[in-house]
Design a binder for these strands. Structure first.
Length: 277
DNA sequence: CAAGACTCCTGACGGC
DNA sequence: TGCCGTCAGGAGTCTT
């Protein structure tokens, strides 16, 4: 599922195709895909606008328009942006035609993705924690922030208001590499473990971007239609029943905060007085 | 403040 | 073979 690396890859590959393009008209095939303003306001607000830049904040794509407004896009599980000749490829939810005839399309099998239009990032996006790949996230900050919270480590890391951009895959991978169990209470993580975890998160996300994201199922594809390659570097995600690449112990899958969670029982010691399964 | 339940959706998959 | 129930999963909302 698209997390920070997949969104960053999408932004990078989309950028040359959409920056400078002018939106002539907008077709909305599934109204709920349009979150923020009404569908009418969304269509009117985009018509005639030129995209001047594309950036990313957390798992959101942000399209900057020539009138200073912003269009946000969240891929959620199965969302995908493409640019091509087709107005309505399979599962197309919103299509924007550029003045050169090309169609900029948002497709989304499961219909969880959302597009929005607004004046500023603040009114368009919910409260978000620091960006992991910038100096906004550093070991000292993470150590202090973890100590203050009395929540399970994994659900906290998945909380976008705590740290932005992490999802199920990269949290599992990062915790495994850091040797931390997802059921640990955040405040029990030591300062040095927090520093390690911080560096690992940055490294995992950075490597995943280099690999153009992860495609373990049929869902995530780059705008060009290619799968990512980072799934080949997974240590635990989706590897339950298989041997840990580090120690050979069988990877277990458990449920943490309603999320499928993968751990190596040996590399990630179970926190005291907590049961797994 | 923490955490679980529920909701939105559809394709894939297991069971029979 | 085919039908059907179940499940995954990000994030918002509601309840405990």
């Amino acid at each position: 599922m698209p997390e920070l690396p997949e969104v960053e890859t999408t932004v990078r590959l989309l950028r040359p195709d959409v920056v400078g393009a002018t939106i002539e008209k907008v077709s909305v095939f599934w109204e709920r895909t349009v979150g923020r303003p009404s569908v009418t306001a969304f269509r009117r607000g985009l018509a005639g606008r030129t995209i001047t830049a594309v950036s990313r904040r957390a798992k959101y794509l942000v399209f900057h328009l020539d009138d200073g407004r912003l269009m946000s896009g969240h891929l959620r599980m199965t969302g995908r942006f493409t640019v091509g000749e087709e107005r309505k490829p399979p599962h197309a939810r919103v299509a924007m035609q550029f003045d050169d005839g090309r169609w900029f399309v948002f497709s989304d099998v499961r219909k969880f993705g959302r597009l929005g239009l607004g004046d500023t990032l603040d009114d368009l996006l919910p409260p978000l924690g620091p960006e992991p790949l910038t100096d906004a996230l550093d070991g000292d900050w993470l150590a202090t922030a973890l100590r203050r919270r009395k929540r399970l480590l994994k659900p906290l890391l998945l909380d976008q208001a705590f740290v932005a951009g992490l999802g199920n895959i990269y949290v599992d991978e990062s915790l495994h590499r850091a040797g931390l169990h997802p059921l640990r209470s955040a405040h029990t993580v030591t300062r040095s473990q927090a520093h390690d975890l911080c560096a690992i998160i940055k490294d995992v996300l950075g490597s995943a971007i280099v690999a153009e994201g992860s495609s373990f199922d049929t869902f995530y594809r780059t705008p060009e239609g290619n799968p990512g390659a980072f799934q080949d570097e997974f240590f635990v995600y989706g590897r339950d029943g298989k041997p840990c690449r580090g120690c050979g112990t069988t990877i277990k899958k458990l449920l943490v905060g309603q999320r499928g969670t993968h751990v190596c029982p040996k590399c990630q010691p179970v926190p005291r007085k907590r049961r797994t399964r």
